[in-house]
């Protein structure tokens, strides 16, 4: 896996695996001090492998709007995993009243509420009137920093 270079409360920095590995080595060059290089050859970090646990069940979605500000903002790319189970506290891609939406699932005393991360938006209480389909669970979001 990835090797950590630096850790603080705010951020972790990982060492890219491909920085030192140069392959293939010519036979003569590989002799002597480089002879054990092959033991350290490993694959580069592959974001696909990191972000996608269930390839057959993973889809991408794009955020439009600001109701989830705090977790993600307009334009962010979402990794949606249908294989994951929904539960209290998870952020889900939901289908509600003819539209897709992203909200945090809140379960309390048998009542399901969809909570927007942005406090200026109102939570949506799920009743027998509105049918909620949990389409998938957001496992990662990718945010561009221009």
């Amino acid at each position: 896996m990835m090797r950590k270079l630096f850790t603080s409360a705010q951020i972790e920095i990982f060492k890219p695996e491909f920085s030192e590995v140069k392959i293939p080595m010519a036979g003569s060059v590989a002799a002597g001090p480089f002879s054990n290089v092959d033991d350290f050859v490993s694959e580069r970090i592959d974001l696909n492998k990191l972000l996608i646990r269930h390839p057959e069940a993973t889809f991408y979605a794009r955020v439009r709007g600001n109701s989830m500000l705090g977790d993600f903002s307009d334009g962010d790319l979402l990794v949606v995993d249908r294989a994951e189970e929904w539960s209290h506290g998870r952020i889900a891609l939901c289908y509600l009243e003819g539209e897709f939406t992203v909200k945090r699932i809140h379960l309390e005393n048998g009542i399901c509420t969809l909570i927007p991360s942005n406090p200026s938006y109102k939570p949506i209480v799920i009743t027998s009137e509105n049918t909620l389909v949990v389409w998938g669970i957001i496992t990662y979001s990718i945010c561009r920093h221009p």
């Binding site: 889809f59 979605a61 794009r62 439009r64 709007g65 989830m68 790319l77 891609l93």
Partner: peptide
């Protein structure tokens, strides 16, 4: 092309 073109993926209204 929801699954094969990044410009066509699901757009999720968050408002």
């Amino acid at each position: 092309r929801y699954t094969t073109d990044i410009r066509d993926i699901l757009q999720v209204k968050c408002d």
